[in-house]
Design a protein around this nucleic acid. Structure first.
Lengths: 372, 372
DNA sequence: ATAGTTTGTTTATACTCCGAACAAACAAAC
DNA sequence: GTTTGTTTGTTCGGAGTATAAACAAACTAT
């Protein structure tokens, strides 16, 4: 918990009023007062401050209530009052996206990947200049990376593709910028990105690409685990795997991943796109491969549902865009394996998910850090 | 979020100082000030108030620092400043426990179970009188029940053993008491109970009795799921189950539970105690039963570990007290199935876990509710 | 027109923490 | 024994917060 002082209650109420206007716009000062339990005088003061800083606008008079009374001045949120920068550092590309507060993309650029911090910082600076966004309006930078991250310290614990091991990216890159910077795992970011457009407090995000990973949001917060390793579903294993001598050992890791991910198809000489687009077109071998994939995936999703009772499971990652042909099948199977209901859907953000989610993460952090 | 006002910051700082004294006692006013960033004058005011209300005591002068200076007056927490009442409504018994703030049991009584609210309220009132505890010092009542609970409304969604379905226990029993009352699932309570004595922010609690259930604590909070159904691991299922035609359907529910719980042994005509105490004593059939049990349990614990990266998994419930003979085996197996490290231990609270945990739950709620 | 209602602003007040000043208590050096 | 420097805890005025009450303005219904 944080200590309480006058500054804190000021910030709290500013944020509270701003969030209320954002969610319930158009709304008058009097309505805000009733809704939040703050006095009308306080709301007036707060709103005047928000108006001055251009966080909100006056939209015009509203309607009178039945029985008369002065019309209230409707207030609206200004999405251009703040911008976030999202950086998705991938194995081959670095995607930089700048959005406003409504998650509308105002700028996007893709650079070749690198592990040189100065180069990355230059990419970010360049994008910020090119975007033409008022730098004073930028609230922070979020960075997503495909590896294990200590989100407290900003240290990349392991990211072999870029040669980072126990490398404190945050400390290295912070000196280049005066904005707060937040680093997290790319799958966690993608999950937050999906959550940004599709509010929910309890969801599981599955990323199926060449490998498989997951992110968990419970009680509205990311579950990162004791050592930031939560979501490593690539390691899942079952009795049949063990019966066949499969194990997660140093030679071969990812028992589940080798059967449910792009890797599973590649091992057989196929691409995920190819097999999925040829499903149920008369080739027995392909049908069998997919059926196994769907079966094991559905069982796993069902068990996750029984375990965490999420509102929804979102499937993303490179392979997900080919999964339309089997998504109904998956839903049906999951419903037959567990009697806890769950929504299952494919991700909607595509390759932007990581960068957008990084912004969502930065935004979440800034909002929460101040009041906890 | 809650609105901010002067009352809030006062409460926050009172709680903050009290918690600091509790954790770091003996500690002086000056040290508290440094630790929390509050001014010495504020700490003085707060401590005086806490002294007046007998939440803390002055213990005597401490040591001077090197180089001289006035000795600080050491402050200590008074565990007898507050008492909690825990009620574990079981299928056959109702256990009522009263503890002080250090979770020391000052009173315990066991009554026969009933679904009559007035009778339960009488049990609680009787126990409170008998205990001799100053009623002004009681901060709240926690109630644990073996069923699905909407912890927000206090409604018991389903508890067939006592004939409760969509029954709002909180609304029914609150009129009998002026203390805040909190209701939760018994396994969730037991998990909080274990966590009370063994602080951790990320743990999974498994209750193995005649059935099997679990509770999850992530980021320091209970994970209850979208509809309070999280932890239903009795429904787990794997490819081998499906191959053998097992399913979680209306006729037979709990595919995993039927193989890993007391039920699994009873189905074969044995008690859990009997088979476990006769493990590796020359009876092949028993050894095989246990091996299967341990294998499937270990696989499941490993997958939970890969998924949530908990600091520890605690195994409780009626069967757990017979599990000593296989706990080492389980630890070894889990470590071979996942390379995410996790501590595995047997629960230490026994049959008191539910009632104690209910107190821990009430305590958590009261501390958090005021500042969120 | 008039009365009743609602909105938004102004003003005085109550309450919070805080910083500076202060007295008291102590160790170390002389 | 005295002095010096340090630390602790208290006191008091000050800055800043929300709030209630009073007020002005805007509107409907009769």
């Amino acid at each position: 918990m944080k200590k309480g002082n006058l500054d804190l209650i000021k910030k709290m109420n500013r944020t509270l009023v701003l969030e209320t206007i954002r969610r319930d716009q158009p709304i008058s000062r009097a309505s805000i007062s009733k809704k939040l339990g703050l006095s009308r005088s306080t709301v007036t003061l707060v709103v005047n401050e928000l108006l001055e800083k251009k966080f909100v606008f006056e939209l015009g008079l509203g309607d009178s209530t039945v029985g008369g009374g002065r019309k209230g001045m409707k207030l609206g949120f200004n999405p251009k009052s703040g911008y976030g920068v999202g950086v998705d550092i991938g194995r081959s590309n670095i995607i930089i996206i700048i959005t406003d507060m409504d998650s509308d993309i105002v700028f996007k650029e893709i650079y070749p990947s690198t592990n040189n911090v100065e180069t990355i910082a230059n990419y970010i600076s360049t994008s910020m200049s090119k975007s033409g966004v008022d730098t004073k309006r930028i609230f922070g930078i979020g960075i997503g990376v495909p590896g294990l991250v200590n989100t407290r310290s900003g240290e990349i614990i392991e990211l072999s593709a870029l040669g980072w091991k126990n490398f404190n990216l945050l400390e290295q890159i912070q000196p280049y910028f005066k904005y707060p910077i937040f680093v997290n795992n790319d799958v966690n970011c993608a999950a937050l990105g999906e959550r940004w457009v599709d509010k929910t407090d309890n969801m599981i995000f599955i990323a199926i690409g060449s490998g498989i990973g997951s992110a968990i949001i419970a009680n509205g917060d990311l579950v990162e685990g004791h050592h930031f390793s939560a979501g490593e579903i690539n390691l899942f294993i079952d009795r049949e795997d063990i019966k066949h001598g499969k194990e997660n050992n140093s030679e071969s890791i990812g028992v589940f991943e080798q059967q449910v991910s792009g890797l599973a198809f590649e091992k057989l000489g196929y691409s995920a796109e190819f097999v999925l687009s040829n499903y149920k077109k008369g080739q027995k071998e392909i049908d069998q491969i997919i059926d196994q994939f769907v079966n094991y995936l559905s069982i796993t999703l069902a068990n996750m549902t029984s375990f965490l009772n999420p509102e929804k499971i979102v499937i993303g990652g490179g392979v997900s865009k080919s999964l339309n042909v089997v998504i109904e099948d998956i839903k049906q199977k999951v419903a037959s394996f567990t009697n806890i209901p769950v929504e299952i859907e494919l991700a909607c953000l595509g390759s932007d998910a990581g960068a957008l989610g990084a912004i969502a993460y930065a935004f979440d952090k800034i909002q929460n850090e101040d009041f906890m």
